[in-house]
Design a protein around this nucleic acid. Structure first.
Lengths: 132, 132
DNA sequence: CGGTATCCGCTCTGATACTG
DNA sequence: CAGTATCAGAGCGGATACCG
């Protein structure tokens, strides 16, 4: 095992724990919840997309960041890269089964946040005016 | 409304869309999924905690970052801060109902990621050895 | 205990330019 | 189209010091 934390009592818990600083799951969580990682996975949930399609879908991402994000997600086994040696080149990105599981939970979170925005914005106004 | 993007056709979609660069929901999503935001909300799901309890629970966070994170989450109406004017001071942080909804989805994601780590780590080895 | 203020390095980010 | 390379800067984040 790769954990750097607990002797693992072999009980009902996961052997990985994001709350522990040295746990490898924390890094993966950061790829997944990162600024562009979350949106990239969310965008791919509907189906496979090409690089520039993805770039348009994830409004505001630069080529560099999208490329970097995609590499991290591919390395973690969440996204599959399919390159066709045609000219011009065509590369499709799609979720792996693992990535699909992650994206599902991510979208549940995203939709909940979107649906909560009226409440969030109201809370902000209260907060700001309280210490104006 | 505060959206900066679409005329809002009044259909079945949310009026907010994180994929749009200027949508305010994107900022909130970043607070929630941020490096410390996700862990803080997750830690508070089990119940209210004091500042230093939280600091110990979220392994690796500095005072500054925890404080900053808590302010952002409080402003967004996800965390409630309860200060008691005793000596020594005692301050409890707890989730609001909205925060509870967010934390639930977040924990589903976190647990899924933790449970996927063996697969992730295996994928990484394949990826790395493929281009060693 | 529960913070805030300040300093400062280092990473992350976005433009820009270039390649296959 | 699908990237990589390079560079400058903004801000993230940690360490330290200090306050109520």
């Amino acid at each position: 095992m790769t954990t750097t934390q607990e002797p693992s009592a072999g009980l009902d818990e996961f052997p990985y724990n994001v709350f522990a600083k040295a746990c490898p799951s924390r890094g993966t969580l950061e790829h997944v919840t990162g600024r562009w990682g979350a949106l990239t996975l969310g965008a791919l949930y509907e189906g496979s997309l090409r690089f520039n399609e993805l770039r348009r879908r994830v409004d505001g991402v630069s080529e560099k960041m999208l490329s970097q994000t995609l590499h991290a997600l591919e390395r973690d086994g969440l996204v599959h890269r399919e390159a066709q040696p045609t000219n011009p080149p065509r590369v499709d990105y799609e979720l792996t089964p693992l990535g699909r599981g992650v994206a599902e939970r991510l979208l549940a979170l995203i939709h909940f946040v979107e649906g909560s925005m009226d409440g969030v914005l109201a809370a902000r106004e209260r907060y700001d005016s309280a210490r104006a």
